[in-house]
Deep mutational scan, measured.
Amino acid sequence: KFNKERVIAIGEIMRLPNLNSLQVVAFINSLRDDPSQSANLLAEAKKLNDAQAP
């Protein structure tokens, strides 16, 4: 279950337009470290993406 959620979360994070490459890598590394947190990490990535919108 967590592996599928992690793959989906990674794909979504990679498509967030307002994150820089270091932020994307940090979120992906966090997902690798704890796949059970996929939903929480994706939500945090989306919040950061929205906050950094031009």
Rank of each mutant, 00 (worst) to 15 (best):
residue 26 A to Q: 13
residue 50 D to V: 09
residue 37 Q to P: 03
residue 1 K to Y: 11
residue 45 A to G: 01
residue 40 N to T: 13
residue 16 L to W: 02
residue 26 A to L: 09
residue 37 Q to V: 06
residue 9 A to Q: 03
residue 18 N to I: 00
residue 17 P to V: 10
residue 28 I to L: 13
residue 22 L to P: 05
residue 44 E to P: 01
residue 14 M to T: 07
residue 28 I to N: 02
residue 5 E to G: 04
residue 43 A to S: 13
residue 4 K to W: 10
residue 20 N to K: 09
residue 20 N to D: 12
residue 31 L to K: 00
residue 12 E to Y: 13
residue 31 L to A: 04
residue 26 A to K: 10
residue 23 Q to S: 02
residue 49 N to H: 02
residue 10 I to F: 03
residue 5 E to R: 03
residue 13 I to T: 01
residue 8 I to T: 05
residue 54 P to Y: 08
residue 17 P to Y: 05
residue 8 I to E: 14
residue 25 V to N: 08
residue 32 R to W: 15
residue 48 L to T: 02
residue 43 A to E: 09
residue 6 R to A: 15
residue 17 P to C: 10
residue 39 A to D: 06
residue 31 L to D: 00
residue 8 I to P: 04
residue 20 N to H: 12
residue 18 N to W: 12
residue 1 K to L: 08
residue 36 S to C: 08
residue 41 L to A: 09
residue 27 F to G: 00
residue 36 S to A: 11
residue 52 Q to S: 04
residue 13 I to P: 00
residue 10 I to L: 08
residue 34 D to N: 11
residue 27 F to D: 00
residue 49 N to Y: 00
residue 7 V to W: 15
residue 22 L to W: 06
residue 39 A to H: 11
residue 4 K to Y: 10
residue 29 N to K: 07
residue 16 L to N: 01
residue 32 R to K: 14
residue 52 Q to C: 08
residue 34 D to R: 05
residue 43 A to V: 08
residue 41 L to W: 06
residue 14 M to R: 08
residue 41 L to M: 10
residue 26 A to R: 10
residue 45 A to M: 02
residue 34 D to H: 14
residue 17 P to K: 10
residue 19 L to A: 01
residue 6 R to C: 15
residue 38 S to H: 15
residue 22 L to M: 13
residue 16 L to C: 02
residue 13 I to R: 00
residue 30 S to D: 05
residue 22 L to R: 10
residue 15 R to G: 07
residue 22 L to K: 11
residue 52 Q to A: 07
residue 52 Q to N: 12
residue 12 E to Q: 13
residue 4 K to C: 14
residue 26 A to H: 12
residue 26 A to M: 07
residue 39 A to K: 15
residue 11 G to F: 11
residue 53 A to K: 11
residue 39 A to M: 14
residue 29 N to L: 08
residue 17 P to F: 05
residue 49 N to E: 01
residue 36 S to I: 06
residue 42 L to M: 06
residue 12 E to G: 06
residue 1 K to P: 14
residue 36 S to L: 08
residue 34 D to I: 04
residue 53 A to F: 08
residue 8 I to R: 13
residue 54 P to M: 13
residue 54 P to G: 11
residue 1 K to H: 14
residue 51 A to D: 06
residue 17 P to D: 05
residue 4 K to R: 06
residue 20 N to L: 11
residue 32 R to A: 06
residue 15 R to T: 07
